[in-house]
């Protein structure tokens, strides 16, 4: 039990440690600046270097989580595709009953390909350009990094729209939350956390149709563990991203725009990683739920 609890507490501990460390560094820099005013010219540069050394591990951790997740998802989809396509042929009536379209598999495969070949390298480049921009402010690469982040975000949104459109079109997704309630909530979440917020609302409404059936088959405990495992990487990435945003907010009044801007940019990039992790989690859960429904509907059939 203690180990399971640690899985969820560890990211929070790392976040807390990072926040405390940066606060201590801020205090130290302010003290040195107060006693040695000439130090101010070097302070920003040194602070950025210390930030990179201190929080670089967290960023690397976020990228390794994403890399692992993409590899696992890639293997999972590679393994599950033959099974699903075979089932598609054998249990044609079941598939027509649940109104599932094989195009979804294609969209998931594209998503994985995008993550492997585009997302991780693009965000790394954006982070390095942000670092260069903040390091020498007269040479700005901010437009390039924003372009990269914007393009990646567009690709992710396009994948999401494609997925939701296909699901809605085939009748799999229907929104159980009342629109009158859902719309304002979605807007508020979207404004607070762009992309990720809308992903959560859209994604969770997709599963409602299968949830009860799957819970009957697998049991509540198994389903909870399964949901937890699917969205754990996304949750961890979200904690990392919000840590950076939080540190940027705390540090801004005391250090100036350069350092808080850099931290905010890193937070934005990690939020993008989180959005993709949520999408992959949704894809993962969706395929499992489909399999569970097929299992239940296919039991007793003579084929």
């Amino acid at each position: 039990m203690h180990e399971i609890l640690n899985i969820f507490l560890d990211p929070l501990k790392v976040a807390g440690q990072s926040i405390i460390l940066i606060l201590i560094y801020t205090i130290l820099f302010l003290i040195v600046e107060a006693f040695v005013p000439k130090f101010k010219t070097w302070a920003d540069t040194l602070f950025i270097i210390i930030l990179v050394l201190t929080l670089g591990q967290t960023v690397a951790d976020a990228f390794s989580i994403m890399g692992d997740l993409v590899n696992i998802a890639s293997d999972f989809f590679l393994g599950i595709t033959p099974i699903l396509t075979s089932l598609l042929v054998v249990l044609n009536s079941v598939f027509s009953f649940i109104a599932w379209s094989p195009v979804i598999l294609f969209i998931f495969e594209i998503l994985i390909l995008l993550c492997k070949k585009v997302l991780i390298p693009a965000i790394t480049v954006a982070l390095i350009l942000d670092f260069c921009t903040r390091f020498i402010q007269d040479i700005s690469f901010s437009k390039a990094s924003e372009l990269i982040r914007g393009s990646v975000m567009t690709l992710i949104t396009a994948s999401l729209i494609a997925m939701v459109t296909v699901l809605s079109f085939t009748g799999v997704a229907f929104f159980t939350i009342d629109q009158a309630i859902a719309s304002p909530i979605k807007k508020v979440i979207e404004q607070t956390v762009p992309v990720v917020g809308s992903l959560i609302v859209e994604g969770f409404s997709i599963f409602h149709k299968y949830q009860s059936t799957a819970t009957t088959v697998a049991g509540f405990g198994a389903m909870s563990a399964f949901w937890g495992a699917s969205f754990y990487p996304a949750g961890r990435l979200l904690i990392h991203a919000l840590t950076f945003k939080f540190i940027a907010a705390i540090v801004e009044p005391f250090t100036g725009s350069t350092i808080s801007g850099l931290l905010d940019d890193v937070g934005k990039s990690l939020l993008l990683l989180c959005a993709v992790a949520i999408l992959l989690g949704i894809a993962f859960v969706f395929i499992w739920l489909i399999l569970m429904v097929i299992m239940q509907l296919g039991v007793g059939k003579s084929f």
């Binding site: 010219t41 540069t45 790394t124 480049v125 390095i128 670092f131 020498i136």
Partner: peptide, 16 residues
């Protein structure tokens, strides 16, 4: 990227 980081670091040192 490696070249870019190198030139930025050297440039900053020179500027300072």
């Amino acid at each position: 990227l490696i070249k870019l980081i190198a030139i930025i670091l050297i440039g900053k040192c020179l500027l300072l």
